[in-house]
Amino acid sequence: MAAPVSSIRNLGPAFEAECTRAGILSADGLRALGADAAYARLLAAGTRPHFIGYYVLVMALQGRPWNDCKGAEKAALRARFDALKAQSAAPEDGSLPHELAVFLETHGMRKQGPDSGIS
């Protein structure tokens, strides 16, 4: 049986539940995706964006304490978080965010087409 997401230091049951909702079912799956792709999936699945949650994830995947992020590194992570958050926002034309559209199409919940938002 695969190790649960919560087996990664600093990631508990609530984060694991969010991952499950986003289709991330194991610690190995989370590591394979990496922090940015995993967080994009979480946002696409409806997780509310929160910078601390993002950098805790980054630190956890690096095997570091959650509060080890400081200074220039924290500023760089903030820029990455802001970019992920912006990419997950719904386009002004009302179509689905690209990441969500791809996820839904990949999992057979939406057909790809000219109005799908998938390029």
Rank of each mutant, 00 (worst) to 15 (best):
K74T: 05
A101F: 06
V56P: 07
K70W: 14
L30C: 04
G53W: 04
A75V: 00
K85F: 10
H98P: 07
A22P: 11
Q62L: 15
I118K: 03
A86T: 05
D28I: 05
D68K: 12
A90P: 10
Y54A: 11
L100R: 15
E105A: 14
K85E: 11
L30D: 09
P91T: 01
L77Q: 15
C69L: 11
A40N: 02
A38L: 03
I52W: 07
L104Y: 12
M1N: 08
Q62E: 15
I24K: 13
E73D: 11
V5A: 04
E92Q: 14
P91C: 10
A14T: 05
A76F: 06
A79T: 10
M1W: 10
K70F: 15
S6Y: 07
G34H: 01
S95E: 03
D93Y: 04
E99F: 14
F81G: 05
A27S: 04
A40T: 00
K111F: 10
C19W: 03
A32D: 07
L30A: 05
P65H: 07
P49N: 00
E16L: 02
L57V: 01
A38R: 09
D68W: 08
G117D: 03
L33N: 14
K111H: 13
S26I: 00
T20M: 11
S95N: 11
P49S: 02
H98C: 10
A37W: 04
D82R: 10
L96G: 07
G71H: 09
V102A: 07
L33Q: 11
A101W: 04
I8Y: 06
Y39V: 01
A2D: 10
L42M: 13
L25G: 12
P97R: 02
F103G: 07
H107C: 12
K85N: 12
Y54S: 10
D28V: 02
A72H: 06
P97H: 09
P114K: 14
E18S: 15
L57C: 05
R21A: 09
G113Y: 00
T106Y: 07
E16N: 06
A32L: 06
S88K: 04
A35T: 00
A37N: 02
G108A: 05
S119G: 15
L77W: 12
L25N: 12
A44C: 01
L43E: 15
R78S: 13
G34I: 00
G46L: 06
A75I: 00
A90R: 15
P97D: 02
R31K: 13
L43D: 11
M109R: 15
V56R: 15
A38K: 09
H98V: 04
K74H: 07
A79W: 11
F15S: 03
K70N: 11
M1L: 06
K74G: 09
N67L: 13
L104N: 10
F15H: 13
I118H: 03
Y55G: 04
R80W: 09
Y39Q: 11
A75P: 01
A14V: 10
L104W: 11
A45T: 02
N10M: 09
T20N: 08
G23R: 01
L104G: 08
F81E: 08
T106S: 11
H98T: 04
R9G: 09
G29H: 02
F15K: 04
E105N: 12
Q62P: 08
G113L: 01
T106F: 05
A40R: 14
T47G: 06
P4K: 14
R9M: 10
M59K: 12
P91Y: 05
P65S: 09
C69G: 10
T20D: 12
